[in-house]
Amino acid sequence: MKFEGAMLEYRLQRNSDKFEPIFYYSHIDLPQILARRECEFFIKEGKTFKQLSSAIEGDLFVIYVELYEEAPMEMEEHIHSGIKLEYRELSASNNHPMLTFEYMKNHLDILSIIGSIYTYIEGVEWERDSAEIDEDRGVYVLYVKSTGYLFEA
């Protein structure tokens, strides 16, 4: 496989033409890199970064980001095995309420969901707005808005 020894680096935009490496992952599998690349936002150490673009330099995957906002660092207890995915309604005025969550077995499962435009929760269709990887809490978050369509199987 071409990207067996893949690595990931986040680079922060310092000015219009200068980027500085800020986080580096040398032992990371390709599905996790792809899931992270699908996320418009990345949270680490209380800082939220917004993705600007991405690139591949040989075996090095690069995600270019800008600082979006800073907040106190949140932590979450890890009591389940698997990777947690939260579904949140896009509503800043309501603090993005959680609709539901589930635990996935691997990053391909995460990518399959966050890479889709539409998802269904209890028969209601939701449209994807954005996704984030929150390293502080150890979760992926999918932000969605209701289309008003009810899915009948």
Rank of each mutant, 00 (worst) to 15 (best):
P31I: 03
N106A: 05
F49R: 01
R137K: 15
T100N: 07
I133G: 01
E38C: 13
I83T: 10
A6Y: 01
I110V: 13
F101K: 13
N15I: 07
D109E: 15
P31S: 09
E9M: 11
L52N: 04
I43L: 03
K50I: 09
M1G: 12
E76I: 02
E122W: 14
H27G: 06
S112C: 10
E74I: 12
F61E: 00
G46I: 03
M7S: 09
Y87N: 06
R137T: 11
V62H: 01
H107T: 01
P97R: 11
E125W: 13
R11N: 02
L34P: 02
E77T: 07
S112K: 12
W126K: 08
I79C: 07
G46T: 01
A92S: 10
A92N: 06
R11S: 02
E86R: 15
P31C: 04
S16T: 12
S130R: 14
G46L: 03
L60R: 05
K2D: 04
E102C: 14
V144R: 04
Q13H: 08
H96L: 01
S116K: 14
K105W: 07
E86L: 15
T100H: 06
Y64P: 03
K47P: 03
K18M: 07
A55D: 09
S54G: 12
Y143V: 05
Q51Y: 00
M75Y: 13
E74C: 14
